[in-house]
Simulated scan of single mutants.
Amino acid sequence: MTARQPAEWMPHVATWTAWPSDPALWQDDLLPARAEVAAMIWAIAEHERVELLVGTEEAAASAHEALHGASVRFHHQPFGDIWLRDTAPLFMASTAGPAAAGFRFNGWGGKYLLEGDDAVAAFVAHGAGVPLAKHDWVLEGGAIEVDGTGLCVTTEACLLNPNRNPGMDRFEVEAHLRRDLGIERVLWLGDGLANDHTDGHVDNLARFVAPGVLALPAAAGSDDPNAEVYDDAHERATAFGVDVVRVPSPGLVEVDGVAIPASYMNWYVANGVVVVPTYGAANDAAAVAAIGSFFPGRRVVGLRGNAILTGGGSFHCITQQQPA
């Protein structure tokens, strides 16, 4: 079998994540973000080990206090910020054993270049005891979503953005995905969510819930800022031939009068639990129930993610699964 990333719902050895550590980045949201990350870790650690990066001595002390007794292994390693979906390696499996793929990281198109982020992939692969193959093109883990069979979904807004790999067209991108990740088929969606600084990471928009089955949001009213994006994604996905299931959208979520990229799709699937971000929106409970129907046999829990979202993402963005 070609080495490729297993689907997220396949068994894990561990989950890698990081503790909010830099007060200059998080400011007033540092303590609330730590509380939300801690709640996520406690939920995951009931079912699998959590490997936690801490960037400073103060951060380590606060993490030890918040997570005392949980199945967590601490790693003292400087890093820029907690978005390990994008800075950690993508773990893969094959008949030859586990492997990891690391890619060039340029701060989401040069917007957020933080010291230490470019060292995370090598550190995590070494800590996991998995050989790392380094690939010299820009790819963030949140930009792709796989179903484990060789099928991938992504967005043109991100992977074809000239701020990532200038001069690479979709055919070259597909060739690189095939060569480095064993991806055989690519479903191209269009734009990502409004005001998403990742330029449209697909893990805020479309997630596989089974082989060939893609979950997409359904707009939550006429003021939903992403209604056209959802409709376009649905049209492209059905034309491609995947089965589509829908999840209610949180609708318009604002901070200081600006729509923010709040999404229930940024859930994380661990061995025995699915952690879904909620925002105090009207559709929180309905979305958690809908996502729960996709993963029978797992506990599905909604946890607030408003403070983490001030940094630009949610639970999927800050985690990286290490497959069994």
Rank of each mutant, 00 (worst) to 15 (best):
Q77L: 09
E172C: 13
R299L: 13
V275Q: 11
G148C: 11
D196I: 05
N163P: 10
Q320T: 10
Y268E: 00
R34K: 10
I308V: 07
R207G: 04
V273N: 09
A99C: 07
G150H: 04
E36T: 09
D81L: 12
F315W: 03
N165W: 02
D117Q: 03
Q320S: 07
P162G: 11
E36R: 00
H234M: 01
D224E: 09
R170N: 04
R179W: 08
V300H: 10
Q320C: 05
W9F: 05
A206H: 12
E145Y: 12
D147N: 05
H126C: 05
P98E: 03
P296I: 02
A45L: 04
V13I: 12
P323I: 05
R178S: 12
T198V: 06
Q322V: 12
L151E: 06
G69H: 08
G69S: 01
G212W: 04
G150I: 03
P166V: 14
L30P: 05
W108D: 01
M10W: 13
R304P: 14
V130W: 13
E156Q: 14
V276G: 04
M92I: 14
V275E: 12
H176F: 02
M265C: 14
N204G: 14
R304N: 15
L309I: 12
L309D: 08
A219I: 03
I260G: 00
L216V: 11
E36Q: 11
M92H: 05
N266C: 10
A157G: 11
F91D: 09
I44Q: 08
P261E: 04
G312A: 08
Y264G: 11
A70Y: 03
A66W: 10
V213S: 04
V120Y: 00
M10G: 10
T87Q: 00
L205T: 09
V130H: 06
P250A: 05
L30E: 15
P11Y: 13
V209F: 05
D231Q: 02
A99D: 13
C158N: 10
A39T: 01
A121E: 05
F123C: 10
D191T: 07
H64E: 14
K134R: 15
N195Y: 11
A93N: 07
I260V: 15
G167H: 13
A287D: 14
G212C: 01
F294E: 06
I41K: 07
V274W: 14
G69M: 12
A285E: 15
P6V: 13
F105T: 00
N271T: 00
G55L: 08
L30T: 04
E57S: 12
A233V: 05
H176E: 13
G313C: 07
V301T: 15
V229Q: 01
G200F: 04
I291M: 03
S222D: 14
G297V: 03
Y268C: 09
A289R: 12
G311T: 11
V255N: 11
W188H: 14
G110V: 07
I44C: 11
A125G: 05
V300K: 07
P217A: 04
V54Q: 00
G241P: 06
V245L: 02
I291Y: 13
D199E: 09
A61N: 08
A60I: 07
C152K: 04
P250S: 03
P89C: 06
D284E: 04
R34A: 07
